[in-house]
Design a protein around this nucleic acid. Structure first.
Lengths: 192, 192
DNA sequence: CTCGGTTGTCTAGCGATGCTAGGATCGATT
DNA sequence: AATCGATCCTAGCATCGCTAGACAACCGAG
């Protein structure tokens, strides 16, 4: 038995290596540079090995996305729990979210821009994605106001942040005023 | 002279044909299906002809984006000018924007998702892009409130719409509640 | 300890992509 | 009417995601 267990361990380890390498390469040179050949070379295996772990490139992107969702949830929870008033929590959430998107552009792309073959807003949505949304919901529910459903409020607030994140990173918005835009968003949307 | 003029006319006509065909093909089957070979076949010329009009695929996407920006500006102006009160104008703007994104997904992608090699938020930004932003600004400036710069307000409102548009289309948000989210956004962000 | 078989990996290659070089062909000008 | 330049196409390059089939290494049984 222990032989099979060791093999399974090694296999899992290699899978982690693939995902980590893909993420690293994507952050360094963009997702266009993440080709199956380059990725295979970096992990020092041949191309077909990738396909024994993942169905294709899409699934590799999806794996990076799931990891990113977990990281994002962690970052958001850490930031919100460090603030004591609802208003401060929301501001911290917004800043952290945008900061995450700016610092991990490739991961953010894997999550929301690229096709990672993941299901969203459905029953079979992977747990990390649900949890990331839950992390937002936990904080935003308390400033949704009485007349608005917390889930709907979270979706809308999240969409606003997502818009800011993508437009800023794509060069459509100048980063200088990022903080002002966050203030505006929190001021108007959050009911304290 | 008239010969050269005719040639120039025909050349310009063919360029329009390329852009229109690319847009059509993208809307029908997605941008992945817009390959230089397929595009060349549809316009009934060989591949290299495309490269005598555009530097590459990126520039073709950019051309579609510019056309889309003009269309978007027109649609927004038509919708806002049909409403008589500021609040109604903003709601119309939001609905029209999201409707445009939903009805012309490929064009919207060319504008904001794909790399069309266009400059944004800069001096050398193409006129249609500036004008599309101006169309938003004209309407949104009157509900920005006194304490907030109109440009900044427009950027933020636009980002929120953009987030709703992309997340909805990518399946991250369910389309059923789209109207509620628009109401929420207008209610809270716009100061009437 | 040896042998058979399974499991795992690699080499090689397929079709398709964006893009380009070089020759052929057509037509306007002298 | 002949020339010469503009215009277009055939053919091909490098690279992409992905896969088939050969090969080797290793485990378990006798």
């Amino acid at each position: 038995m222990s032989v099979q267990e060791r093999k399974q361990r090694e296999r899992a380890e290699r899978e982690r290596l693939i995902v980590a390498t893909a993420r690293e390469l994507a952050e360094q040179q963009g997702w266009d540079a993440v080709t199956t050949r380059r990725l295979a070379e970096r992990i020092e295996y041949s191309q077909p090995v990738l396909y024994s772990h993942f169905r294709g490139k899409r699934e590799i992107i999806g794996a990076v996305a799931l990891q990113g969702a977990a990281d994002l949830a962690t970052a958001v929870r850490a930031a919100t729990s460090a603030a004591d008033r609802p208003r401060a929590r929301v501001t911290a959430l917004a800043r952290t979210y945008l900061d995450f998107a700016a610092r991990n552009p490739a991961v953010y792309d894997a999550l929301f821009q690229l096709d990672g073959g993941l299901a969203y807003a459905q029953e079979d949505t992977p747990e990390p994605l649900k949890d990331a949304f839950a992390a937002l919901l936990e904080c935003l529910a308390e400033v949704a106001g009485d007349s608005v459903h917390p889930g709907l409020f979270t979706e809308t607030f999240w969409a606003a942040l997502h818009g800011l994140a993508t437009l800023t990173r794509a060069g459509r918005l100048l980063p200088e005023d990022a903080e002002s835009r966050v203030e505006l968003l929190v001021d108007r949307l959050a009911i304290v």
